[in-house]
Design a protein around this nucleic acid. Sequence first.
DNA 1: CAGTGGTCTAGACCACACA
DNA 2: GTGTGGTCTAGACCACTGT
Lengths: 254, 254
Amino acid sequence: MPTSEDETGPIYRVIADKLRKSIITGELVDGQRVPGENELMRRYGVARATARQALRTLIDEGIVTPVRGSGNFVRSFRPVRRHAPKRLSAELWGRGRPIWDADAGDRTVEVDNVSVREVRPPEHVARALDLPESATTVRRQRRYLVDNRPLQLATSYLPAELARGDGAVLTAVDTGPGGIYARLDELGSAPAHFTEELRVRMPGPHEAEALSLAPGTPVIEVVRTALTAHQQAVELNEMVLDGSAHVLAYDFDA
Amino acid sequence: MPTSEDETGPIYRVIADKLRKSIITGELVDGQRVPGENELMRRYGVARATARQALRTLIDEGIVTPVRGSGNFVRSFRPVRRHAPKRLSAELWGRGRPIWDADAGDRTVEVDNVSVREVRPPEHVARALDLPESATTVRRQRRYLVDNRPLQLATSYLPAELARGDGAVLTAVDTGPGGIYARLDELGSAPAHFTEELRVRMPGPHEAEALSLAPGTPVIEVVRTALTAHQQAVELNEMVLDGSAHVLAYDFDA
DNA sequence: CAGTGGTCTAGACCACACA
DNA sequence: GTGTGGTCTAGACCACTGT
């Protein structure tokens, strides 16, 4: 009698369903502990692996987070709203303000793990920037933290040619007021149009580590291309966002 | 000797890392079978649960899909590109063409599980549409399939008031050429602006079922508000997309 | 039919959290 | 120290796939 399916499906599913229900109905609140493995074993008379699988289901759905030595907890959700069109308006960086001001509110924003190098671009980057075979790019990598929580990894590529004679600016770790876009403006290559492409997937182990992602958290991959008024691509920025921490907003006309 | 960690971390992680590597380097190609549980048990001398956990890791990362009775396979990834600004241009629906033509290419597009009802809107919908307490809405639900694969669920709400006297049109299952936006145009409420809000999360069991999602597949929740030229909200559309099957594109100016 | 993944049991040792 | 989740073993029966 102790195997696979009865009429209602696998046991672990039944248990997971009950737990999910008590979370959705608000019986179990944000941050509250859910019944642990031992408790589920007692309550439903199942083996440990089965209780575990029930919890695993909820973890995979991203509604519960396990904490070693302590228990499983209902996950809270307070995303950052990221409104790309507003963030990247020239009004903002034109006045020398960092673009993150646009959506961070009164949260603290920090930048981390900065690395700037001149590199041969990957093939898809060279194509996007319309660069010849031999060209090199300035690659800028960094990590953003909001309220001390890592939320985003970013790697951007700029044609090294743009930096000729003024290379120190684009290559500097600190890009100064208004950031890289203000510098591009001063070089006569102000971004005028942007396109963003979004993909969604589960993180690899490196990304899960760098963003401190709980199991069951997807990431959003954003690839942004910045174009001048003459449709010249001047930057390609590949970002990886913690999916549980973001709401992305866009607007456009019919 | 057969417990938890050695210097390189848990055994299942080591196994998962090797498998992942052979997928990324192209040793194992799209759609190809990866070594099964029995093979991993033999090759690494581990118990079944351990081999299983290694495979589970890759499944959770969305790069492998299990098939009952057959094996685990490298997952292929051929997303639909969804360019919202183009899809929703008035040129398109203004000519009576269905908006899905914009990005589906030569794939077949079908609509499924259509349900149209007049309902009291949920609280957040009433707020978004700026409706009084007592107002009702027309709710349209459906599922989209591309090449026979379910890709998207959609639920849209329109103020029932808009349909007064011409209710049969907005309430019809088939909205006719150009879809609902063309009908709104005829009623003098043509959408002029759109805003979209995107969230990412793992699906609940109902969504996983309706979209035939493999384990490890996140969904994208898109909430779109359609506004007239006078900033009047005339539709709110809540969509749930198969995250592994979509690339979303947006563009905007600085 | 043999082989595969899906589910389940009944144990075990470990690192970590908390009182 | 007790309880928690993390990892692991060694079995078992099941439904399903493919030959």
